[in-house]
Simulated assay, not measured.
Amino acid sequence: MAPKQLRIGTRASQLALWQANWVKSELEKRYPGMAVELVKIKTMGDKILDVPLAQVGGKGLFVKEIEEAMLRGDIDIAVHSMKDVPTEFPEGLGLYCITEREDPRDAVISRGVKFADLPKGARIGTSALRRQAQLLKVRPDLEMVIIRGNVETRLRKLEEDKLDAVILAAAGLKRLGYTDKVAEYLDTDLSIPAIGQGALGIECRLDDEEITSTIAFFNHPDTSHAVRAERALLWRCEGGCQVPIAAHGTVNGGELFLTGFVASVDGKQSVRGTISGPVEQCEKLGITLAEQLLKDGAHAILAEVYQREVSRDKEIPV
């Protein structure tokens, strides 16, 4: 039986609130009479806006405070953008559902100019080293400008910072109704998305059977298998938002197809690979591809980025 009341922890940005409100409305439709409350929580990533994420360091910049509230019992579930969720969780917490994915691509916001037609030396705003590395690999002439803030803030920076274009996740733009500003959606062959981009994750206390049974309907199997494979690759590479690692999985008829990419920040060094197999082996496929990337040169790239050795020998917690 579903609880009469349920509290959702969320960040307070417009996009985070859209996502949490969507979960709220789906719960209320499925369980008429349930009182669903949004609890807004400010995370470290929300507080530090004048420093690039790569310099802030650490993992879980957008989820730690929310998880602490869950451990205290202040909230029952948390709604996250999957690309913000670390691959490891505090004891007792974990992802229980991954929702159906929205458009996973990156989008170009410009003055109507497509990526290939941007002038030589164009100034491009982005919040992700992953995007920076991939776009510089194709267009080393570009000047990358790291921008922070919510979707609305980054859109404004096109004019405020006199940029030629900004690159944002298509999913957030579509959810917030900004598709009219998109000049082009970048093919995933050109800009492989962030791990989990476009999908939402619902985190909870895993031993709370009342809550887990209540939210189970949100899980989308194909998206879950694809994202779990991407996260396994990220986990094996010890990646976070400060590292140029990308992966994108798709599922077709029980077969999972996964592409992975690791690069130096300037895009001059990179390694890319693909793998496929049964969806039931999603985590194994992600780790296998990561191992291949590390063998093919990603280990040296990451060692330079991390300034330490990359090693894993314990079971993956995804």
Rank of each mutant, 00 (worst) to 15 (best):
D266L: 03
V262W: 01
G249M: 02
F257Y: 14
V262L: 04
V243D: 13
V262I: 15
F257S: 08
K268D: 04
G254D: 11
Q242C: 07
R236P: 07
S264R: 08
S264K: 06
G260R: 09
P244H: 05
Q242H: 13
G253H: 15
V271R: 06
T250I: 00
V262E: 03
G260D: 07
E255W: 14
S270N: 10
L258S: 00
S270D: 03
F261D: 00
F261K: 03
E238M: 13
C241N: 15
L258H: 01
C237Q: 08
C237D: 00
V271G: 04
S264P: 06
N252M: 05
T250F: 01
P244E: 03
G239Y: 02
G239V: 01
G240V: 05
V251M: 06
F257E: 08
F261S: 02
R236C: 14
V265L: 14
G254W: 11
D266Q: 13
D266F: 08
L256P: 05
D266I: 07
V243T: 13
Q242F: 11
G249Y: 02
R236D: 03
T259L: 09
V271N: 10
H248Y: 13
P244W: 00
A246R: 03
T250R: 03
R236L: 08
T259D: 12
C237W: 00
Q269T: 04
A247H: 09
F261H: 10
F261R: 09
G267F: 12
G260C: 08
E255S: 12
E255T: 15
I245Y: 00
G253F: 14
N252P: 05
K268V: 07
H248E: 03
L256H: 02
V265M: 10
F261V: 01
G239E: 01
L256N: 03
V243W: 09
A247V: 12
A246Y: 00
G254L: 13
D266R: 07
P244G: 05
C237K: 03
A247G: 10
V265Q: 11
V271Q: 14
G260Y: 04
A246E: 02
D266S: 06
G253N: 13
